[in-house]
Design a protein around this nucleic acid. Structure first.
Lengths: 262, 262
DNA sequence: CTTACCCACTCGTCTATACGAGTATGCGTG
DNA sequence: CACGCATACTCGTATAGACGAGTGGGTAAG
């Protein structure tokens, strides 16, 4: 009549030189991999693991902390430690900025989310004139000031992405782009209407652990990295007309690109 | 004559409801951000922090562990905890598979690394015939067996990437592709010589924390995610002729793509 | 001068204990 | 029946202590 742990977990190997907390983590990880615990399942409580393995609580906590760092588990204060559920991912296709996707009245994010059956939301919109950071400045050809458009994107109430667009101020001031809602097709449609025919985009992708501020705004579980994407839009004259700096919850995205073989 | 900590770190706020170990982590993080500790610098030892803040050692270790999870610090047994050095990143451009890059006698990795002044190395090459996993099988059009080419890439002795190419066995068996060294221009050059003219590549990019096995093969510090890239090569008939599954140390890479605005 | 060892210092692992704070459940009261 | 509180469970934070293991420097022996 072992309640939980004993049925699904084995014993420690005292002859092994592998640390006890690592052995416990190994067993839990294996149990998760093999499906003995499934997404969203509650793992045995710290107390149960203490009793099952005959170790102190800190050792058990060390093991659970390892699993959380690996992104396999999340703890919820007062409730328990759970196998981390894999949220549905949003697929970003490399043709998402093609002109044919700009003709609708809604934003690309909204259209796409509704097509996928999710409830899209945009949050914390903020439009400001700023002095650019050195990096943004360099990418935009060293304008003295820029227009910054910040916003957060949510799917079904969950924040998934935080983005800031920067445009040279001389180009954006007193245009629809400086309005909270730039209108159908977004700022790329407005840029083209204003005579800046777009030629191509450069995208740079990095992955790293989030800063504490990013953990807050994206409500990230520990063990979840962020994808940092910086996109620069160029017009047909070769001028950089916009830089979009995006930080995405890595467990919510898969980026897809198609490359010619030429 | 405060040796280290006192000069660079402040005091705790006992009225704050922020946990003590978080306050300590905040102070260290701020000191790192402001450059008071620089890349590779040694942070104050656990003992010094214990004395400076008047807390127990576990509290200090908790704070340092937070910084490591964030990727800001690395600890070295017997030596100390250091501000994590940012290694040079390798830039992967989206045109790296263009035919014009396939004419040299060396592999793309080697050419590019030497151009960047690094010493490239390829490791643990392994060529095997296998039954494909369900995912690989689906991408390749459900072949019964595949040829798998595994290898690890290193720059200046540091592992940065681990990749496996899968090809339908009927296509690769008894060809140069099944040899350890497929020859100049790599397997894409061989495929084209064999009449499979390449049309385009699909790339899927994810980021996540590494598995324990990936931590070992890439010698990853804690707090460093991996970029998981899956590339599928299609010939002009629309047939998937290769899938390349790559796991990269995220702190060693930035991926760059160029997208048309059409 | 070189080698070998010792020692001091570092972080790693583990125990035992205590209290605080969030959550859920059930029971008793109104 | 509904509400509120007590309670028992969860994880979070913090202390104090012990021993182990890796590193590096200095000292003593050869």
């Amino acid at each position: 009549m072992p309640p939980l742990a004993s049925g699904l977990l084995g014993a420690l190997d005292p002859t092994s030189d592998r640390a006890v907390f690592r052995q416990i983590a190994d067993q839990l990880r294996e149990a998760i991999d093999k499906g003995r615990f499934r997404e969203g399942d509650k793992l045995p409580s710290e107390t149960e693991l203490v009793e099952h393995f005959g170790v102190s609580r800190m050792t058990v906590r060390n093991a659970l902390s390892l699993l959380q760092q690996e992104g396999l588990a999340v703890s919820e204060h007062g409730k328990g430690v759970y196998v981390r559920p894999r949220p549905p991912v949003r697929r970003l296709a490399s043709d998402r900025f093609a002109r044919r996707h700009r003709d609708q009245g809604k934003s690309a994010f909204t259209v796409e989310a509704e097509a996928a059956g999710s409830r899209p939301e945009v949050d914390g919109l903020e439009v400001k004139e700023e002095r650019p950071s050195p990096d943004i400045s360099a990418r935009l050809g060293s304008p003295r000031k820029v227009l910054a458009r910040r916003r957060r994107y949510l799917l079904d109430g969950r924040p998934v992405e935080f983005a800031t667009s920067y445009l040279p101020l001389d180009l954006a001031r007193n245009t629809p782009i400086a309005q909270p809602n730039p209108g159908p097709g977004g700022i790329y449609a407005r840029l083209e209407e204003m005579g800046h025919r777009l030629d191509h985009f450069d995208e740079e992708i990095r992955a790293r652990m989030p800063t504490p501020a990013e953990v807050r705004t994206l409500r990230l579980a520990s063990g979840v990295p962020v994808i940092h994407l910086v996109r620069t839009a160029y017009d047909v004259d070769g001028r950089a007309v916009e830089v979009c700096d995006t930080v995405m919850a890595a467990d919510a995205y898969v980026l897809a690109y198609q490359l010619p073989a030429t």
